[in-house]
Design a binder for these strands. Structure first.
Length: 547
RNA sequence: GGCCUGUUAGUCAAGCGGUUAAGACGUCGCCCUCUCACGGCGAAGACAGGAGUUCGAUUCUCCUACGGGUCACCA
């Protein structure tokens, strides 16, 4: 029985030959140097930072070069599938600025190289698998889980390398007659790749991020089709990325160890190997040691974590870019108002090692990003966040839109904009006091006589005119200070503290606490303006009672 | 355990055989200032260890240590 007959016995329904698909999916007509890249998530619906990191890298490489970015769904493991998962992945990525030129979409697939969901491509995989069988490069294996377990145990006790290879590969050297007999008994089988590698040999390989790597040849006969006929990742990767004409594969470096196998597969199938970019893992501090961020343990890996906290997507985008390309920050400092997309992304600036996720840095980046937003954009984005995660605040923002925008506009714009919040969840705490719902006399004034405070507040209330400009307004406070025995000049007070009860700074703080409830606030003049005269005076009057 | 890979300040990082070893975040100090935030100035703080190659190693090679990854009919 020759291999052709075995191939027919294994794949009776597969009529097409590889040529058929080669013609169906011709090489793309793209300019020299255009990158075709993809994102290939499982449909778990769980979008995490790793997706963004890989997605942004692929997206930049593709779009910057005039190439193509597509989305392929790796749904070969049914156990992983979550209903609605594809949609939430697409929406999640889009939220962070990653859009696809072709691939799986919320309303079905689009593009000429589909289908883009692997379970819909089974026919294609079988065609290439059949070819490998014909050529003697793949064979069925009937081992049960128990048998594989036994092999493994023997290998452990004999201290040999673990895996299905060489003499341990029990079905590797069976005759086609033996195989055919087993097959006709109806036994379940998987298709294994017949490796011609030797673990004593090394192969050299260039990864665009890691540089030259030297890896041991693969000698394991890995499974390429599971017993349900669905391919494993490895086989699907080879077939899909070839037929979809991918030029650059961006993936996590946990794939590096299986690279030797992938190289063998591409060679055996007669495919040209794409370029690889293996990205180091994102780590976090765990006690005193670093470890890879884990989907199960670390909430900060999930994008939902950032949405809940209210990081604008632009901030995360910006942060990821600073992690990916070390020169991004310098570029950003030199071009503060340019769009992030104008930055020239380069894989050469990517770090081969994993980097630690740094929330403090993210906050700083976010602060700068938010500072560049207009008050209207802050209001809109804040409202969207609040509606979902702080509905009461959302209601207030909606009702008091004008006041909210004015409050958010204080200190915004200009050369040195305020940078007082990085996330939407911080906003209520910073400026919530402008709304009566969130106003309370939180901070206490210490170290001054109550009577002095009251005297100052009464004088201020009496003199306050909402038509005063900033200078006049502050002049009045200085006058009040002097009349109450406080120095209008801070330097003067510092030089002779014993001559005064305090300075104009202290007087200002009395008024500030009365009006905002806080010792610290944005510009007090602007706050009074937006509160209006009556509300300002009411708060001052009420504060006297509190005292 | 085998195999792979990485290691420059607390963190992110420049650096490609000769540098006073950039810069950013964080920390601390000073200045500006009605508070805060911003901004300005400054300080502390690093080439994991050991061999070798070299006139000269952060940079090249090897070993050790430590970190990370991977060894599925998961991706």
């Amino acid at each position: 029985m020759d291999n052709n007959l075995l191939a027919e016995a294994l794949f009776p329904d597969t009529a097409e030959t590889p040529d058929f698909y080669e013609n169906l999916y011709p090489p793309r007509n793209l300019p020299e140097g255009a990158v075709v890249s993809r994102l290939a998530p499982s449909p778990t619906g769980f979008v995490h930072l790793g997706n963004i990191i890989q997605g942004l890298t692929s997206e930049r490489m593709s779009h910057q070069s005039g190439g193509v970015l597509f989305l392929r769904i790796e749904d070969t493991d049914a156990k992983r599938e979550v209903k609605g998962g594809v949609r939430s992945i697409i929406e999640g990525l889009s939220h962070y600025g990653i859009e696809f030129d072709e691939g799986a979409g919320t309303d079905g697939d689009f593009g000429l190289y589909g289908p883009y969901r692997q379970r819909q491509r089974v026919k294609i995989y079988h065609c290439f698998a059949k070819q490998l069988v014909r050529e003697g490069r793949a064979y069925p294996c009937f081992c049960t889980e128990e048998e594989l377990g036994e092999i493994r145990q023997k290998q452990i006790s004999a201290k040999e390398n673990i895996g299905y290879y060489g003499k341990w590969a029990v079905w590797r050297d069976k005759t086609n007659v033996e195989i055919s007999e087993k097959l006709s008994s109806g036994a379940r089988w998987v298709l294994r790749f017949r490796s011609q590698g030797d673990s004593k040999n090394k192969i050299k390989f260039t990864d665009l991020i890691k540089g030259g790597v030297e890896v041991t040849e693969n000698d394991i006969d890995h499974v390429i089709l599971k017993s349900d006929g669905i391919p494993t990742y490895h086989f699907a990767h080879a077939v899909d990325d070839h037929l979809m004409r991918t030029t650059h594969v961006v993936r996590g470096d946990e794939w590096l160890p299986s690279l030797p196998f992938h190289i063998q597969l591409f060679n055996a199938l007669g495919f040209k190997l794409p370029k690889y970019l293996h990205i180091g893992p994102l780590m976090k501090m765990d006690g005193t040691s670093k470890r890879k961020l884990s989907k199960r343990k670390d909430k900060e890996l999930a994008l939902s974590f950032y949405r809940e906290k209210g990081y604008p997507p632009e901030s995360l985008y910006e942060y990821v870019l600073t992690v990916l390309n070390s020169n991004y920050e310098d570029w950003r400092n030199a071009n503060p108002s340019s769009a992030a997309g104008d930055f020239k992304f380069s894989y050469k600036k990517m770090n081969p090692a994993g980097s630690l996720f740094d929330e403090a840095k993210l906050n700083d980046v976010s602060k700068n990003v938010v500072a560049m937003f207009s008050a209207e954009k802050v209001y809109n984005d804040l409202l969207i966040w609040a509606d979902e995660f702080d509905p009461d605040f959302g209601k207030v923002l909606r009702r008091e839109q004008q006041k909210a925008v004015l409050a958010l506009a204080i200190g915004r714009g200009g050369k040195k904009p305020r940078k007082d919040f990085a996330l939407w969840s911080e906003v209520k705490d910073k400026i919530g006091f402008v709304f009566d719902e969130y106003f309370s006399y939180t901070d206490k004034i210490e170290g001054f006589d109550k009577s002095d405070i009251i005297e100052v507040l009464r004088a201020f209330a009496k003199s306050y005119d909402s038509d005063d400009d900033r200078e006049k307004w502050f002049e009045k406070i200085k006058v009040i200070s002097e009349e109450a025995g406080f120095s209008p000049d801070i330097k003067e007070y510092k030089n002779n503290p014993s001559l005064f009860k305090g300075s104009v700074a202290d007087v200002s703080s009395f008024i500030r606490v009365a009006v905002t409830g806080r010792l610290n606030s944005p510009d007090l003049y602007d706050i009074m303006k937006l509160l209006g005269k009556s509300a300002t005076l009411r708060r001052i009057t009420n504060f006297e009672e509190v005292l």
